[in-house]
Amino acid sequence: MEYALEIDGTPETVPGGTGVLLLHPSTGETDRIDTDFLKTDTDTFLVISTRTTAREVRQKLEYYDVDEKRAEILDTLSIERGYSRRSSDAVHYVAAPDDVDGIVDHIDGFLNDHDGKLRLSFDSVTELAYYAGDDEALEAVERILELLDEYDAIGLFHVSEDPHDEAFVEEIRELFGGVIDLDEDGTIDAEF
Results as ranks from 00 to 15, higher is better:
R86F: 10
F45C: 00
L148D: 03
D36F: 04
G177C: 09
A96S: 15
L156H: 08
S160G: 11
A167W: 06
T13C: 07
E171Y: 02
L111K: 02
I7L: 00
E136V: 05
I73A: 04
D185T: 10
G17P: 14
Y93M: 08
T42S: 13
A71N: 00
E56S: 11
R119S: 01
G186L: 06
R32K: 11
S26D: 15
D108F: 03
D165H: 07
D67N: 12
T10G: 09
D75I: 01
L46Y: 00
Y93W: 04
Y64A: 00
D185I: 07
Y83H: 14
G178F: 04
L147I: 07
G109C: 02
D115N: 12
D181H: 14
S87A: 12
D181R: 14
Y83D: 13
F168A: 11
L111Y: 05
E171D: 14
D189Q: 13
D67W: 00
S88Y: 02
I73E: 01
V169S: 06
T10M: 09
D65M: 05
V141Y: 02
D99T: 05
F176I: 02
D108T: 04
I154G: 02
A129M: 10
D108I: 01
L120C: 12
H158S: 09
D65W: 02
V179H: 13
D99F: 06
R81F: 14
V125M: 12
H24L: 12
L148Y: 04
V47L: 02
R55W: 12
V20A: 11
E6Y: 10
S121R: 09
I7A: 04
V141L: 02
L23F: 00
I154Q: 07
E29V: 05
T40E: 15
E170C: 06
V20H: 09
E12H: 10
I33W: 03
R58V: 06
F110P: 01
P97F: 05
G82L: 06
L148V: 08
D123M: 12
D99H: 12
V141N: 04
D41A: 07
D41K: 09
